[in-house]
Design a protein around this nucleic acid. Structure first.
Lengths: 244, 244
DNA sequence: CAGTGGTCTAGACCACTTC
DNA sequence: AAGTGGTCTAGACCACTGC
């Protein structure tokens, strides 16, 4: 360490350490849910002070790549943990209760990427994608209908059966079965009129207003690997967002 | 300083310093857009090390209460600054260009809080609120129609004329004219069918799908002072959200 | 009690802005 | 050159966990 470049490309030490740790995460050196080395060990490994490692980990924790536990250690973030299972789900019942969704997967097939989809995944036209469709119900009523596209080469062997037999959230499934951990997502939201397909799956009148949410989800290295086109029935639910 | 309570109510020094600084912000000791004292000065003032003050300010900067500028100082966040003028606006044109909205205020009157509104503002039933209505246009087309409620006692002397003559964003207006700086907001979003009032103001067919956004905005001390009930026409626009 | 993360300090030096 | 925030270090001690 200790190699400060010229000011054009100046990057503080802790940033460099952070990048090294991210590289190790990306390489799979430390698995989701498991502990990374202690701050002292990392300080020795990278030949910097513990305080510098600490600042690097602070940044990683702020990005939810790792989770700190005082007295226990620092752990690679995982979507299988109870506390963060629905990290990316912003739907809430209007009455303030907990949202408990039940998933039913309808189909799972391989398709060729359209021009538009290829651009969103930054892959080549007609590259293989997996297309999954599902409905989620809340208190027995269908409230979410979505089409989920996945970059096929990361999800080899995915089947409708495996999806329907998986007990928890999808992102835990990706992590456990396909070694793909989702790091962040971008959502674009519109209000649209339900077409007949959507109306049918959500038991709505045709042209009923539904929330259309396009979510792109990224794994390490800012690589888009999932695109969800979701329709939310927001009669008794709402999408929550906090602005700072 | 240096008074660590028992572990039940343990709060680190930097947290206590942070609270003191927030109190000064709330009291108006330092104004939005102006510099707060340097880290060294604050360290002397509170009898702690510069590093501890630094950590307190780090937290404040993360919450967007202050903005740091290397070599210049640390400044109280302001909605009048060019860079953060539309901090709470998440609408974007689908084509990726910049969203430039033109405001037209329709009305500004005092009303009594309904039970529901009183609860959302945590005020007494029938307390006075200001109700403002406006339409915003993008490229000449109306895309936002909203009703804005304000706690009346903070916004004495607000009139339709003053609103329509204010050149910038509303939050800058609140800050400059009513010494009320908005710190954060919560949004609840649904897709709804436009009623005749909304349809008319947005030049839509009745029952057309629109994005309904209820935003509660808070000033220092987590005090709700504004409630917006907004309808967005999302034909060529979308609401953006980043999930971490 | 050992090991982990969390806090606090003091001091040195770097990067940027302003005069 | 002086002043501000930004980085880095070394060391002490506190709080929490698990053996």
């Amino acid at each position: 360490m200790r190699s400060f470049e010229q000011s054009a490309s100046f990057s503080p030490l802790y940033q460099q350490i952070k990048d090294l740790i991210v590289a190790s995460l990306q390489a799979g050196e430390w698995q989701p849910g498991h502990a990374i080395p202690s701050e002292m060990e990392l300080a020795e490994r990278y030949k910097v002070s513990q305080g510098t490692v600490r600042k690097a980990i602070d940044a990683l924790a702020a990005e939810n790549l790792v989770v700190r536990h005082q007295g226990r250690g620092t752990f690679v973030a995982s979507h299988r943990e109870e506390a963060v299972q629905y990290r990316f789900l912003r739907l809430m019942p209007d009455d303030g209760n907990e949202l408990i969704l039940k998933s039913k997967f309808l189909s799972c097939e391989t398709v060729a990427a359209s021009e538009d989809l290829a651009k969103k995944f930054n892959i080549k036209n007609k590259d293989a994608l997996v297309l999954i469709q599902r409905v989620q119900t809340f208190k027995g009523r269908p409230v979410v209908y979505e089409s989920i596209y996945l970059v096929a080469n990361r999800f080899k062997g995915i089947t409708l059966d495996r999806l329907n037999n998986w007990p928890g959230p999808l992102y835990g499934f990706y992590e456990s079965e396909f070694a793909t951990h989702m790091v962040r997502a971008e959502e674009h939201i519109k209000a649209v009129a339900a077409n007949s397909e959507v109306a049918e799956h959500l038991s709505l009148a045709k042209a009923a207003p539904v929330l259309f949410v396009e979510r792109r989800t990224f794994t390490y290295g800012n690589k888009a690997v999932e695109l969800r086109l979701a329709h939310y029935e927001t009669g008794d639910l709402h999408y929550v967002n906090d602005l700072n």
